[in-house]
């Protein structure tokens, strides 16, 4: 398949995923937390496709992909630390914790 058509195909998939994302996101009243997780999963998949094709990550060396993953991985402890901080918010006395 020519590269142009491959890009167009990927674009179509991402747009289709966007439609699915909107549908899932709009159903938060019925789906609850599942909608939240679904939307974030779809966004992650879309971003992965953008990285692989629009950013030509798949043509780069493995090193680029590894460092990109490490860059994202360094943020994981921050998210975890924030998550554990929510349970013990010392500044939330006014909020009824």
């Amino acid at each position: 398949m020519r590269e142009e058509w491959q890009l167009v195909a990927v674009y179509t998939i991402i747009v289709a995923a966007l439609v699915a994302e909107v549908i899932v996101g709009s159903s938060w009243m019925t789906l609850g937390q599942t909608a939240l997780i679904g939307v974030l999963v779809i966004a992650t998949l879309q971003a992965a496709l953008v990285f692989a094709f629009f950013m030509f990550g798949k043509y780069g060396t493995r090193s680029v992909a590894i460092i990109m993953l490490i860059s994202i991985g360094t943020l994981l402890p921050l998210f975890l630390a924030f998550a554990f901080s929510i349970e013990f918010p010392p500044h939330a006395a006014a909020g009824g914790h």
Binding site: M68, L75, F82, S85, G95, H97
Partner: peptide
Amino acid sequence: VALFGPLFAAYFFVRANSAFTGF
């Protein structure tokens, strides 16, 4: 990534925290 990541982490924190602060 290290710029936008903490911004999204901040979003996550302030939004999740809003449940405890009454916002």
